[in-house]
Write a protein that binds this DNA or RNA. Structure first.
Lengths: 158, 158
DNA sequence: AGCAAACGTTAGTAGCACTAACGTTTGCTG
DNA sequence: CAGCAAACGTTAGTGCTACTAACGTTTGCT
């Protein structure tokens, strides 16, 4: 947010939505900076982590599992495949599909990203005690859970 | 984030940075949707609120106070001025400057946005009790404060 | 007088999320 | 089994927030 040197004590300052989005902005910057030194961004990490967790899969399946939109998945895989971190092979059993799999280099990159990410958590939560961190995590989990449910009715009329 | 129907139980799910950015994403969507029905977005609200709080000012001053980047300020003011919510007049005392001021229509729009925003807070925090909301707000404030300090050293070497 | 700084503006980038449209391939159903 | 709907991958484009770079103008300090 550039340099709000004159501070910004308008009315919205204490609104939860403001606090949330601004703190998230800082978190996003921390993580983004950490990732960028190894030439990665959020989508790269998410895809690599999903691949390691679930194993090779089609682009559509990876999209569902990682929460990355199918159309963004194409570019993400392109970028990772160009650097040999991921492999894209046609599925012999279904010619519509590509099977994406993690390479050894991709796994090493994932390790690096995980390390960076762990450091970021600490930097992010620096001013909080262990109990406070725990509490914050719990509160945020509850919120996220709630909005995931209500936000995705999953065809509730059937 | 589209429809993560297959859920997304990979490793990152419990990381504070993830919880924070995802919850913020939901907050952002809530507010964005609410604002969009009156054809506004975040920057519009922030600028209107800043104008009401501090009164007429130059674009640069508004940028510092609202945290909106000067270059985005131009477009934001253009959009609001086109709809008569804000007025841009040259500063007779300093020909580099424009003086931006809130119109009556702009004030009415601000009222509308504030109402919508208040509703969003409730929707955002729905699953939390009053004490929990209070706690969350406090924790987030502490984080935000910390990162605002450390993120903007304000020429610490002088 | 001269120069650095502030100001407004334009143009462009990045990241994340999402829509729309298209052609191909499957696979269910009538 | 013919036909059609659905799934798949892809391309192109949009929106919002944030930021960088460059430019010409105007100030104001030295």
């Amino acid at each position: 947010m550039q340099n709000p040197s004159e501070k910004t004590p308008a009315g919205w300052e204490s609104l939860p939505s403001w606090l949330l989005t601004q703190t998230a902005q800082h978190a996003h910057r921390l993580v983004g900076d950490a990732f960028s030194v190894v030439h990665a961004r959020g989508y790269h990490y998410r895809l690599l982590a999903t691949l390691e967790t679930f194993g090779p899969a089609s682009q559509a399946a990876l999209g569902r599992r990682s929460g990355i939109h199918v159309s963004d998945m194409v570019a993400t895989i392109n970028e990772l495949a160009d650097r040999g971190l991921v492999e894209r092979a046609p599925d012999p059993a279904d010619r519509r599909r590509n099977i994406i799999s993690l390479t050894a280099a991709g796994q090493r990159q994932l390790r690096r990203l995980e390390e960076r990410l762990a450091e970021c958590q600490d930097e992010l939560l620096a001013p909080l005690s262990a109990e406070e961190r725990q509490r914050l995590t719990e509160l945020l989990s509850r919120l996220l859970d709630h909005h995931r449910r209500t936000g995705t009715p999953e065809e509730p009329w059937r």
